[in-house]
Structure formats: structure tokens, C-alpha cells
Design a protein around this nucleic acid. Structure first.
Lengths: 224, 224
DNA sequence: GCTCTTTATTTGTTAGAAGGAGATATAATA
DNA sequence: TATTATATCTCCTTCTAACAAATAAAGAGC
């Protein structure tokens, strides 16, 4: 890291987002390839330096747009990373977010002013990442897993109606485990995240499946 | 905020900690009074600017020590605050932590190089705070409430043995509600945070009370 | 066309665990 | 012996996990 005469000077703020999707039962994350130093040629999560005239989430969304072209995305801050040597140029802390989006509904820019490539990577096959983004990604995935059971964060993947067997596949992909179809149904309904639409549709079966949707407002329940 | 020619320059990082304690059934937070501008004379949470040569938690603990004299304290990061105008001098983001400590076991410095006073305030009687510390405090309290039911964060208040009626008073103070003594006992034991010591002690009653202690390792249980 | 088989979807059943509230037993003090 | 906080017991309801059964369509064969 560049030496500084002052204990405080030359500090900066990164806003980084791990953008997840699920395609055919596979959880994937969006990575971009850096065009410039440091870590030139390396894959990283989407993100970059915060501007002075924008709030944290605004900056995170701007970075997402600049590096991928994605415009409408809900994000949620989960942790800030600030090891002394996490960036090689100057002292940077990274405010990290997660986001979920349906990859089939967005067109990701392959190249931008700062990136030479962009693609969805299965979370089982992540290349080496620049900065401390491997650590950030690991914690992002943990956070995502905790959120899908208590919030409507998967609404990004199911904005309208869906069947329970259909969304079960997504839960299984993200949590990386299989569930009994009957108990999953009961458990998911007991979480009070979704509601019946009184309509039916089709998934993989021959019998029509009931359609559900995420509730408008979700109230969280406490242990005590 | 001071105008900057660059979108990136003149950024800085605050590390802020909301330090809680519980005294006789009252939840309190440690505040310090600022000696210098900005917000001179205002009460704030403990914290200050991060140095370039220290990690985030190291910086947070150093700030706690410098402004209160408290040395041994476990802290946990919960959120970063970064509204554009949260500091009036330059663009600062605040990485916020919570900590818990037994106020009867520590001696808090009343005055330091940067502070003219320090005291424990009941969370029901918080004065106006400098910066965005009122917002930080509110979220810190929410985070604390979520943590005492899933981690051993209260170990700082009960480092050794304790009785269940005794710790129930602390839970009630923090969560701000009363519990049935029989069901609280069952519920707390079912959380698997504490274990029997096969010893007895005294609390308020005349019958000896069983002594418990926090477990060494706590494994968290998932919804699914 | 008609029936039978197949398959995913949905509902139901059961035993055991956990939760909530009343009642009882215990071990000290005064 | 009366009192009091602590600890245990009981009953009933609800939740959970594993398993069984019923349902509604599609497709195969005649």
C-alpha cells in the first residue's frame, strides 16, 4: 500500500455487490473481468469506488449499471470489509451488498469502459477473484441463504405467480439440499411469505399446480 | 460538506461502537461528550476515524480505548452508514459495531483528549446525539435484540455462573417485555446457548437457584 | 373414441417435540 | 409455621418430520 504521511489520508470506499441468479437449479453469481490495474484481467464482483455525491446504495447501483447495464435491481447491504491490505493501491474499505435478479430477463453488457467481459458463474465453479472478493462472495452467499427464509428477496426471481414445486427447486439450489415436497410446502406456507392466488398453472407435472405469489408486506416473527 | 474537485477525494472512514450494559433491569448505552468541532459539546456513541494501518475492528477497539479507557471488549459489526451528509466536514462512512460489557466491572474515563465527559444512558432517555448516531443507536439496539437469542453475546454480562431468573431479568430489560418464568426457562434451555453446572447459588429467592453457564461453542440452527 | 398406466401435484395421518398456562413441590428465611 | 422465590410437573394445543393416500392431467394401446 502507498505510504501516507497522515494516519487518515488517502482513504476510499468501495461499493461491491454480489448479484445472484438461479438457472435450472444452479445458483450463479455475476462476475466481471477487469480491464485495468490493479488486478487487471481478473474476475471480480461488480462494484467500484463510491462518489462523494451519492449514498451507499445509490453508488452500488450505479456501479452495477456501469459495469453490467443492469438497471432495476433491489440490493441489500450485509457487511463491510476493511482489512488493511485488501486493496493494493490505497486504503479502501468495501461496503458489500447482495442482489438477486432473473438472468433470463436481463441483458448483461459483455464489455464496458472498465470491463472486458461479464458472465454468470456457477457458485461451484468460481475462478480466482481480484481483491478480497472471494471472501466477500462466501459471506454474501451465507447472507443470501439466511434471507430467503425470512424475506421476499426471491421475489426478483418470481415477480408474479409461481408454483410451490417450482420455487422449491430454487430453494434447493440456493441452500444446496433437497427437501421432502410435502413438508417443504407446509414449512414454506408457515413462514407466511407467500399467499394463494386461487389460480392454477403448470410446472413439470400433469396435474395443474396451484399458483402462489409473494405477499405485499411481510412481518418478521421473533424467537421470544 | 466541503466541495471536492474529484468525485473520489477526501473520503474517510469512521468506526463507531454502541456499547451496551444492563444495570438493575435497565438497558443502558455508553455515550461520550465531544470536546471539539464538529458537534462540539454533543453526546455521541464512542468512535472516530479509522487509521490506515489498522483493520476495522482494531480501529473500533482503539477508539473505544482512547475515548473511554475500556480495553477488553468483544465487538460485532452490524451495518455501515453512509448518507452523503452524515458528517459536516468531509465525506465519511461509519462502520458501526455493537458491544456488550458489564458497567460494574469497568471504570470509564470521564475525560480524555477528545471527550469532556462519558456516562451510561438509559436507552429510554437518550439526549440528542451528534452526527447520525441516533439512527445508528436505534439499529444497534435492534441488532442486539436479535443477537441475544442466537449467540452468547450476553457472556460479557455473565462471564461465569448465573441463575436463570437472574438472566431472565436481563433478557426482559433488553427485549423490553416480561416473560413467564416457567416457559422462559424452557425456551432458553431449548436455545442450547447455556448448560447446567450442577452447582447452586442464590439470586433473590430463598431456595437455592441452579447455576448455569454459557456453552463453549454454539452451533446455530437453520429454519430449513 | 375409450380405458389403463404413468407422473407430478396436493392433501392427509401419525408419532414425537415444543409451546403456553395452571398447579404442585422444594428449600431456604423469618 | 408462614412466606417466598425457585424448580418441577401436568395438561393441552400447536408444530415438526416422516410417511401414506388421493387427485388430475398426459400418453399409450386398443
Amino acid at each position: 500500500m502507498k505510504k501516507s504521511n497522515s494516519l487518515y489520508k488517502n482513504q476510499g470506499i468501495h461499493v461491491i455487490t454480489a448479484i445472484f441468479t438461479v438457472e435450472q437449479g444452479v445458483t450463479k453469481v455475476l462476475l466481471v473481468k477487469r480491464k485495468n490495474e490493479p488486478y487487471k484481467g481478473d474476475w471480480t464482483l461488480t462494484g467500484g469506488a463510491l462518489y462523494n455525491n451519492e449514498d451507499l446504495d445509490t453508488g452500488a447501483k450505479r456501479e452495477i449499471f456501469e459495469k453490467t447495464g443492469i438497471e432495476d435491481i433491489e440490493i441489500e447491504q450485509f457487511k463491510t470489509f476493511g482489512k488493511v491490505d485488501r486493496s493494493s493501491v490505497m486504503r479502501m474499505v468495501a461496503v458489500a451488498y447482495i442482489g438477486v435478479i432473473d438472468s433470463s430477463r436481463v441483458k448483461v453488457l459483455r464489455e464496458t469502459i472498465n470491463t472486458s467481459n461479464a458472465d454468470w458463474f456457477s457458485i461451484d465453479k468460481i475462478p480466482g477473484l481480484g481483491f478480497d472478493h472471494e471472501e466477500i462472495l462466501e459471506e454474501a452467499l451465507n447472507y443470501l441463504r439466511s434471507k430467503i427464509v425470512s424475506t421476499d428477496i426471491l421475489k426478483a426471481l418470481f415477480p408474479h405467480e409461481f408454483t410451490i414445486p417450482e420455487i422449491q427447486k430454487t430453494y434447493e439450489a440456493i441452500l444446496n439440499k433437497k427437501f421432502d415436497r410435502r413438508n417443504f410446502r407446509k414449512k414454506l406456507l408457515s413462514l407466511k411469505l407467500i399467499e394463494d392466488t386461487k389460480k392454477t398453472g403448470k410446472f413439470e407435472g400433469k396435474k395443474p399446480a396451484k399458483l402462489y405469489k409473494f405477499k405485499k408486506s411481510i412481518k418478521n416473527q421473533n424467537v421470544f
